[in-house]
Amino acid sequence: MKLRGNSAFMRFWFASTVSDFGTYITTVALSVLVLVSLSGTAFDQGLVNAARWAP
């Protein structure tokens, strides 16, 4: 049986892809927000990126 024929696997694969894409977009959006909208520095951007890993 091929995995593409398994509906549970396809749902899992699709959900994982959407989640990864959302994580990437959030990372880019936070960087743009800090640098452009809040007039942040590279240090500020580093703090925001480090804060993502704090929890």
Rank of each mutant, 00 (worst) to 15 (best):
M1N: 11
M1F: 13
K2N: 01
K2I: 01
K2R: 12
K2S: 01
L3V: 01
L3W: 01
L3R: 02
R4C: 01
R4N: 07
R4H: 09
R4G: 04
G5Y: 10
N6R: 14
N6W: 08
N6G: 02
S7W: 15
S7E: 15
S7I: 15
F9E: 06
F9A: 06
F9S: 05
R11A: 14
R11V: 03
R11Q: 11
W13G: 08
W13I: 11
W13H: 14
W13Q: 13
F14S: 05
F14Y: 10
F14E: 07
F14A: 04
A15P: 00
A15N: 14
S16I: 05
S16Q: 09
T17A: 15
T17S: 13
T17N: 12
T17F: 14
T17G: 08
V18T: 11
V18I: 12
V18P: 07
V18R: 13
S19L: 09
S19Y: 09
F21E: 04
G22H: 08
G22I: 03
G22N: 04
G22V: 03
T23Q: 12
Y24C: 04
Y24A: 14
Y24T: 12
I25W: 09
I25C: 09
I25N: 03
I25R: 09
I25G: 04
I25F: 12
T26M: 10
T26Y: 14
T26N: 10
T27E: 08
T27K: 12
V28L: 13
A29E: 11
A29M: 12
L30F: 00
S31Y: 11
S31A: 14
V32R: 08
V32N: 01
V32W: 15
V32S: 07
L33N: 04
L33R: 02
L35E: 04
V36P: 01
V36S: 13
S37I: 08
S37F: 10
S37T: 11
S37P: 02
L38V: 00
L38K: 08
L38M: 15
L38Y: 15
S39E: 11
S39C: 14
G40P: 01
G40Q: 03
G40A: 03
T41L: 02
T41M: 02
T41V: 04
A42C: 05
A42F: 08
A42V: 14
F43Q: 13
F43C: 02
F43P: 00
Q45I: 04
Q45F: 06
L47M: 07
L47F: 05
L47N: 05
N49Q: 08
A50G: 06
A50P: 04
A50L: 07
A50E: 04
A50I: 00
A51Q: 11
A51I: 00
W53V: 09
W53A: 09
W53I: 05
W53Q: 11
W53N: 07
W53T: 02
A54G: 06
P55E: 07
P55S: 12
P55M: 11
